[in-house]
């Protein structure tokens, strides 16, 4: 019976992130539209889009290889696994032992690699330029992300997400400059990785500015549906990571009573909803950057992450 409950809880966690992801996408779109004084699509529009794309014919280029056909599913799978591992409403679930921060970075790296490969597979100019830019951004964002992981791991003493969250909920860690800096660096990385405004614009199809959209431009039908779903799940993954690492209050940690789990679910949904509202507000207040400014933007994130690690070395005592 206890085993069944464990499996059920892990299942809830796995399907929650996928089911809630398009809704969060809808919220960001809606808020952004309202900020620009437009009405915006209804909140469930992303679900309808996915439904529509699933039923459309998938058009393939003549010279597309199997890589091109497999890539959307593989990328979605990698991102889904990563998102299902991040603790959302409770820690210590059945598969929590495998939720390592560094493994998570590796899973996301895999998904990105697969998509970049698919972007270059057909051999059009857009796919190539998109893939090369995506790789450039990744090569700048990943070191910053790893430094954030190290900073958090130095505070908590482990890189395992579930344990980190449990420690941050139960043990007061005090006012930490390092965690603030790590949060700052992490937000920068998340913006870059999710192709949001100062780096990339998810709504544009203007040739010179596209990064992610250029890479997946050739896709249609069910393949495109998988890619869009993967993008939405990735956004929710980063939201849950911020919630889990920096604002873990309300999570069900030791006792798994119905009340604790309900509370955990409610606070989790509230947290990601707040972030889904804050993201477009941030996006509308800045302008898109030139490609050559990306290293400066992500270099700032890297510097903040490195400072966070250094400050921890100072304050931990030598």
């Amino acid at each position: 019976m206890a085993m069944m409950l464990e499996i059920a809880l892990q299942g809830v966690q796995m399907f929650l992130v996928v089911l809630v992801a398009p809704l969060m996408f809808g919220v960001t779109r809606k808020v952004k539209a309202r900020l620009l004084r437009r009405i915006g699509p209804p909140l469930i529009q992303p679900y309808r889009d996915l439904w529509k794309l699933m039923h459309k014919e998938a058009v393939l280029a003549h010279n597309a290889s199997w890589v091109y056909r497999v890539a959307p599913y593989a990328a979605f799978a990698a991102i889904w696994v990563a998102a299902a591992l991040v603790p959302t409403f409770a820690t210590d679930l059945l598969f929590s032992w495998s939720a390592d921060l560094i493994a998570l970075v590796a899973l996301l790296g895999c998904a990105r690699f697969i998509l970049a490969l698919a972007g270059m597979d057909v051999g059009t100019a857009f796919g190539g330029i998109g893939a090369s830019r995506e790789m450039m951004i990744a090569s700048l964002a990943e070191p910053a992300m790893l430094l954030v992981a190290f900073a958090v791991a130095l505070v908590a003493g482990t890189t395992q997400l579930s344990t980190i969250a449990a420690i941050f909920v139960n043990v007061p860690v005090g006012l930490r400059v390092s965690l603030g800096l790590a949060l700052f660096a992490f937000v920068f990385v998340a913006i870059a990785e999710n192709a949001r405004v100062p780096i990339d614009n998810p709504a544009t199809h203007l040739e010179l500015t596209m990064v992610h959209e250029a890479m997946v431009l050739e896709y249609s039908g069910r393949h495109l549906a998988m890619i869009e779903a993967a993008a939405a799940v990735k956004l929710v993954l980063y939201f849950s990571l911020v919630a889990c690492l920096f604002f873990p209050f309300g999570m069900a940690t030791t006792e798994k009573s119905a009340l604790a789990i309900a509370l955990g679910l409610a606070t989790y949904l509230a947290k990601i909803l707040v972030m889904a509202v804050l993201l477009p507000i941030g996006e509308t207040s800045v302008a898109k950057m030139r490609v050559f400014r990306y290293p400066v933007f992500l270099g700032g994130a890297f510097a903040a992450g490195a400072l966070a690690v250094f400050l921890l070395f100072v304050s931990k005592g030598f």
Binding site: L175, R176, V177, A303, A304, L311
Partner: peptide
Amino acid sequence: SPLAFDIAHLLAGGMLVLSFLLLYQ
């Protein structure tokens, strides 16, 4: 007390971060 230490740490660390911001601007 740990709180006093944390606040001092926060302020001094903030100065260092602002030094970096000076370089960044």
